[in-house]
Design a protein around this nucleic acid. Structure first.
Lengths: 209, 209
DNA sequence: GTCTATAATTTGATAGAC
DNA sequence: GTCTATCAAATTATAGAC
């Protein structure tokens, strides 16, 4: 489930437990004892495998980021036709975030808490940074061909991410404010897999013939 | 700046300091000593004015939420024409979030960490809950008059909030991934005060004559 | 490798002088 | 009201047996 390049079975168990606890409680809220309990071992072993809480956290954070961005990169770098790519991105992001809402919440919170070091040390790692040069190029071609109106790749991605991810990470507020049951919320998000790409595509498509 | 109904000058200083520290580091990351230092006093005084860290946090959280939602309510409940209301909401949210990005980050993080109790105890308080019944009614009328296509008020609000707020709370990632300077990022967000409402209005306006 | 026991540190909270 | 000094509890980290 969770990405682990762990060698031993115990190490993998620890990483999975730590991931769940850190995602749920954040870096400071998570206690080593919680993680040990979740993994079914004792605290001493945590320190045996990972030197400190900081090291363990860094590993979990790096893995979580990698999962989240690698799927995005896969689609971004594919040679799908632009509109299809947009539909795939929306579907993938809604599905991924619904299944694991803590990942973006966690990343946003921690990155904002420690912007300089995290961004530099962790995101600059291997392949985590979304490569969206190919999307820029693709968009430039579609603009030249006259199929879509001039639009920045940055804006397009901001729109996709905001529309797909935000309602899910703000779900408790959304549900409370709008009096939505879990079932209703899920249905709305499922609808959005279609309505969001439709809205985005419509906003960039050339209207006149 | 920060909302305080504090009676004494010191109490106000503490609340402002606590707000800054809690917003920056979260509930668990913030230490009472940090807050005391920020306020230029000592820990004992914190306990003299507020019984415990929990009480202090609750006060700060409640105030932060109130600031953020009261402005939304103001616009939501106004009798502005629908499209104008949408433009105002987008402008207000981008401006507010740019000035104080920690508020939504903070709210999202803490609410998700403690959904049941916070939602119930704090949001159910006084006037914090966005009253969007009036928006629902307004939309229903516009649909009946045939000016816009059938659309759910929930979706409209999700779109506005996601498009306006998400890029800002994910700013460090956005800037890193898209290689944007502060100046470029600010210019893009300023543009979005116009492009977002245009996109949203276009998506709900009846196309045929 | 895994455990128990314990050290070392951090931190929320209080006592008591001024 | 504000401070210094200190306690008590929680929590990270390590020592050492098996």
């Amino acid at each position: 489930m969770v990405n682990t390049s762990a060698t031993s079975e115990t190490e993998a168990r620890i990483l999975e437990a730590a991931t769940r606890i850190f995602r749920a409680k954040g870096r400071d809220g998570a206690k080593m004892q919680d993680i040990a309990d979740e993994a079914g071992i004792n605290k001493a072993l945590l320190h045996y495998y990972f030197r400190s809480k900081d090291k363990l956290f860094e590993q979990v954070f790096r893995d979580s980021s990698a999962i989240f961005f690698s799927r995005l990169n896969e689609i971004l770098q594919s040679d799908l036709e632009l509109f299809t790519k947009i539909r795939r991105l929306c579907d993938a992001y809604i599905t991924m975030t619904m299944e694991n809402p803590f990942i973006p919440i966690f990343i946003i919170g921690e990155v904002n808490r420690n912007a300089e070091s995290f961004i530099t040390n962790i995101f600059s790692g291997n392949g985590i940074k979304p490569e969206f040069k190919s999307l820029e190029k693709q968009i430039a071609e579609e603009i030249r061909s006259g199929r879509i109106r001039p639009v920045r790749a940055e804006e397009l991605l901001m729109n996709i991410l905001g529309l797909c991810i935000f309602p899910i990470i703000a779900k408790p507020m959304m549900q409370h404010n709008m009096s939505l049951s879990d079932k209703e919320f899920n249905r709305i998000m499922d609808d959005r897999k279609k309505t969001i790409p439709a809205m985005i595509i419509d906003s960039i498509k050339k209207k006149n013939t």
